[in-house]
């Protein structure tokens, strides 16, 4: 009797531990919401979503428009995907279909190491290494701009895209490959016309997760994009993303001011955007695994 109670108790403890993850996720959302809501007593939601200027320290009237940083975030994210998707999917296809087992043994840890490099180090190299190169090539002042941020974000998103795309390609049944070869296709045609299409939803999910990564990445864009508060105009101009705005301003702001709460509102938007992207990636991914079953 005693023993049964004890077992039941232990199971309950573990159950609570499992549910804790849900609580953390819900807690993040609710705390962001709680700390963001007071901001909208002063500033309307419409103002927040439509004003093209973010200027909390304005002399007369502070404005809190999300648009400049939202556009900045989208710019660097899309820029990074233009680099990271072809490079990442190409590398994944190389690893799954061309590389010899020995090359694969070496390349896999390389991707893992790349994933492990702290973002602050990548951002640092954006300043000292990539910035001067961009500056020389384009004549911009210090090379700290959206282009720089895009390239660095591509580096950050690559490991996710590579390893998940490779998993997707590896899960394509061998039977498809055999059928294609038996019809007189060579290995390249098989990869291009059978394996990649069959793994398409898995690869798409991988790219979306990579995109979620890029949108939420903070230190690289904070250090390498120049952080000008104006509305972004080109890839060669400085931009200030949602993540950098929070990172810069939360350190300077007084607690419980409208500005403080507004930063939580930005965080909430960030949370919602990445949440939706991850959820979509998840759904696409499950369609992928079910489609192959």
């Amino acid at each position: 009797m005693q023993r049964r109670h004890k077992e039941k108790l232990i199971e309950l403890i573990f159950l609570f531990n499992g549910v804790l993850v849900v609580l953390v996720l819900a807690g993040i959302f609710l705390l962001l919401l709680k700390n963001a809501l007071p901001a909208f007593k002063e500033v309307s939601v419409v103002h927040f979503l439509t004003k093209p200027i973010w200027n909390p320290d304005a002399y007369d009237q502070a404005t809190y428009g999300l648009l400049p940083m939202l556009v900045s975030t989208l710019m660097v994210t899309l820029g990074s995907l233009v680099v990271a998707i072809p490079l990442g999917v190409g590398t994944a296809a190389y690893l799954s279909d061309v590389a010899s087992p020995r090359v694969r043994e070496i390349a896999k840890p390389v991707v893992e190491i790349l994933a492990g490099i702290p973002s602050v180090v990548v951002g640092f190299l954006g300043i000292v290494l990539l910035g001067p190169v961009i500056s020389k090539l384009t004549g911009s002042y210090n090379g700290l701009n959206a282009l720089n941020g895009s390239i660095l974000l591509a580096v950050m998103a690559l490991p996710t895209i590579i390893s998940l795309s490779e998993d997707a390609l590896a899960s394509v049944p061998r039977a498809y490959e055999e059928a294609s070869l038996a019809l007189g296709a060579n290995r390249w045609e098989t990869v291009l016309r059978v394996k990649i299409p069959a793994a398409a939803s898995g690869i798409l999910a991988a790219c979306m997760l990579g995109m979620g990564r890029a949108i939420g990445e903070t230190m690289t864009v904070l250090m390498a994009t120049g952080n000008a508060a104006e509305f972004p105009r080109s890839f060669l101009g400085p931009v200030k993303t949602m993540t950098s705005t929070i990172a810069i301003e939360l350190g300077e702001v007084a607690y419980y001011t409208t500005h403080f709460h507004m930063l939580f509102a930005v965080g909430l938007m960030l949370f919602i955007i990445t949440f939706i992207i991850n959820l979509c990636a998840d759904m696409i991914f499950h369609r992928h695994t079910r489609g192959l079953a």
């Binding site: 993040i28 960030l270 990445t274």
Partner: peptide
């Protein structure tokens, strides 16, 4: 899976709030 996709700066905000 969704928690793993939450941006690190959002965790920072969460840490500040909690």
């Amino acid at each position: 899976r969704n928690l793993s996709g939450v941006p690190s700066i959002v965790f920072g905000l969460f840490g500040v709030a909690l």
